[in-house]
């Protein structure tokens, strides 16, 4: 792609974004709709999460999030069924020595970012989905830089499948706590999860737990799709 093509693409994305913002103001007059207003005024009291988006996604509407996470589970199951029986090619040797050395020094810092994003999901923008995707990218990076043989030995497909299944089970289990405690499935503070003091790292009840579970699930799901896609070309064109 030429520089000009990049410029056009960036301009198009920016224009679309601007158009979307203007359009959303046009249809809502910029004022908050009743339910949204409730989330903004009572969100911190109801969910103890100072990130209202996390409060909506993982408390008020946590059931939707369970569904979205399950969509990833279904996609992984579909892709791995399609590629079942094929093995990961070990012919990739990764990048040159210079890149490998520098990445191995930087890897520790690379892990810090997704961990921060997931751990602070209830405090600042981010959360399980965003942090999980960053984690999956790190696994991809590991394979690109050090070669698929080293990569798939360190973090294998089998580990990823286990991590995904167990995190899905953990999501259901956290939801079931609400049933046992009497607040209803996926209830948060009303099921007795400790609210803590809003704004501190240990607060918002089950929301950080759910962020952690979703982070593991998204990371393992996307990474195992990556492994399926790089494994043998068994699908005929």
């Amino acid at each position: 792609m030429t520089t000009r093509a990049y410029a056009v693409a960036i301009a198009a994305v920016a224009a679309a974004g601007l158009g979307y913002v203007l359009l959303s103001y046009a249809v809502t007059d910029g004022a908050l709709l009743p339910v949204a207003a409730r989330y903004v005024t009572d969100g911190v009291r109801d969910t103890a999460s100072i990130n209202i988006v996390s409060g909506v996604l993982l408390d008020y509407r946590a059931f939707d999030t369970l569904g979205e996470a399950t969509v990833i589970l279904a996609a992984v199951a579909a892709v791995s069924a399609l590629f079942s029986g094929s093995t990961i090619g070990t012919d990739s040797h990764g990048a040159g020595l210079l890149v490998q050395r520098s990445v191995s020094y930087l890897a520790g810092f690379f892990w810090l970012f997704p961990v921060y994003i997931i751990a602070n999901g209830h405090l600042s923008p981010g959360g399980g989905f965003q942090g999980g995707v960053s984690l999956a990218v790190l696994i991809v990076l590991l394979n690109v830089v050090f070669g698929t043989r080293v990569g798939s030995q360190r973090i294998g497909v089998k580990h990823l499948h286990w991590a995904e299944s167990l995190s899905a089970a953990a999501f259901i289990a956290i939801g079931a706590v609400g049933i046992v405690q009497g607040g209803g499935f996926l209830a948060n503070l009303s099921a007795g999860f400790p609210a803590g003091s809003p704004g501190s790292l240990i607060s918002a009840g089950a929301i950080p737990l759910l962020n952690l579970v979703i982070g593991v699930k998204v990371a393992s799901g996307l990474a195992s799709i990556f492994y399926d896609l790089i494994s043998g070309d068994r699908v005929a064109p």
């Binding site: 946590a62 499935f185 948060n188």
Partner: peptide
């Protein structure tokens, strides 16, 4: 679900 009444 989660004990929240309908529109919320």
């Amino acid at each position: 679900v989660g004990g929240w009444a309908a529109p919320v």
